[in-house]
């Protein structure tokens, strides 16, 4: 009895001391770094522009970050394994286009959305199979898929946009629930799901283990191939969701949608502390990364900085974020 109590007390002490240690040793520091950077940016922008500090503007920022955030959540799973998925931008377009074509031809909204998502997941699944069964490097497999998916989207639409989507679809991109735009709600839901998968399920645990040491994970009896395929399928599925939301927002499915979005999504993950070496990262970090990019774009827009210069700034921020991370690691 007393033994048990003692153990509980020890466990508790352990827990708090661990919390404090993490705090001190800087495991949280990085995340605080992003939050701090975000706060400084917000303060600076609200001084420089009277429009920045408005609720409507914040809702706008989240809405503009939503597609990037959804793609980045999917990519986070992949990058934690030490892999990469370059195909998400193209898969996004293919999923949107497939939904559009189905809507054009028979109109059932549920089936159309479902098929769009399935195609997204299938692309991810194929990536996973190519990487695990044919031993292709993730960069190559998904580079190929990037071209295949884009090509198929163009073939299906012959390059023409599919416009005039039904209201039930447009709801996903343009409507609001309780004053919050539906894409933003979706981001929140997908964030919660990603966070739970990563921190509370087998898939998440194996994800970090594979990224940390694939060989040791295999020798611990984990079916590494199976879980990698699942993880790439998740990335494809998230790209599919993003494709449908984007089509709904702009009220048309375009084969050229999402060009280069994969790079933005990688940037958001990396700013959010996901390590391209694998084994490190979190859904909350990635969400912060996507918001940082959104605030930056929005702020630069409000300050009338040209989109050309915006590109430059985003690039600088990505490099700065990773450099800070590296410096911190060196010090530890």
């Amino acid at each position: 009895m007393s033994d048990k109590i003692q153990k509980q007390v020890m466990a508790k002490e352990q827990k708090t001391s661990v919390g404090i240690m993490k705090f001190i040793t800087g495991e949280y520091l990085q995340k605080f770094g992003i939050v701090l950077a975000l706060l400084i940016m917000c303060i600076a922008l609200s001084i420089m522009s009277p429009y920045f500090l408005k609720v409507s503007n914040f809702v706008n920022i989240l809405l503009q970050s939503s597609i990037n955030a959804i793609l980045a959540f999917g990519l986070t799973f992949v990058i934690i394994t030490g892999g990469i998925d370059l195909s998400v931008g193209s898969v996004l377009a293919l999923a949107g286009v497939v939904m559009g074509v189905v809507l054009q031809n028979q109109g059932n909204v549920v089936i159309a959305i479902f098929l769009g998502l399935i195609v997204g997941a299938l692309c991810g699944f194929s990536n996973g199979v190519l990487i695990t069964k044919l031993n292709l490097p993730p960069f190559i497999a998904t580079l190929g898929m990037m071209s295949i998916a884009r090509g198929l989207a163009l073939v299906i639409t012959k390059g023409y946009p599919i416009s005039g989507l039904p209201p039930a679809v447009r709801f996903l991109g343009a409507d609001k629930l309780a004053g919050i735009p539906v894409p933003v709600l979706l981001v929140i839901i997908l964030f919660v799901i990603s966070h739970i998968i990563l921190s509370n399920t087998k898939i998440g645990r194996y994800d970090y283990a594979i990224g940390g040491n694939e060989e040791a994970t295999k020798l611990s009896g984990v079916n590494v191939d199976k879980y990698k395929i699942i993880i790439y399928t998740i990335s494809g599925l998230f790209a599919g969701i993003a494709g449908i939301v984007l089509a709904a927002r702009v009220n048309s499915a375009l084969a050229i949608a999402g060009m280069g979005y994969e790079l933005d999504a990688i940037a958001a993950s990396v700013i959010g502390g996901v390590s391209l070496m694998g084994g490190e990262g979190s859904a909350s970090g990635t969400l912060l990364g996507a918001v940082v990019m959104g605030v930056l774009r929005n702020g630069l827009n409000l300050l009338n900085v040209s989109t050309f210069w915006q590109q430059v700034v985003i690039g600088v921020v990505v490099i700065a974020a990773v450099s800070l991370d590296q410096l911190q690691k060196k010090r530890r």
Partner: peptide, 29 residues
């Protein structure tokens, strides 16, 4: 170092890695 352990994971996460199925409630750890 290279085959026995995932160095970046905690003691707990390494110890339970081969038997994770025993620590699943529904689908959660």
């Amino acid at each position: 170092k290279m085959q026995g352990l995932v160095q970046a994971l905690s003691v707990t996460h390494n110890v339970t890695l081969p038997s994770l199925n025993n620590f699943i409630k529904k689908i959660f750890l």
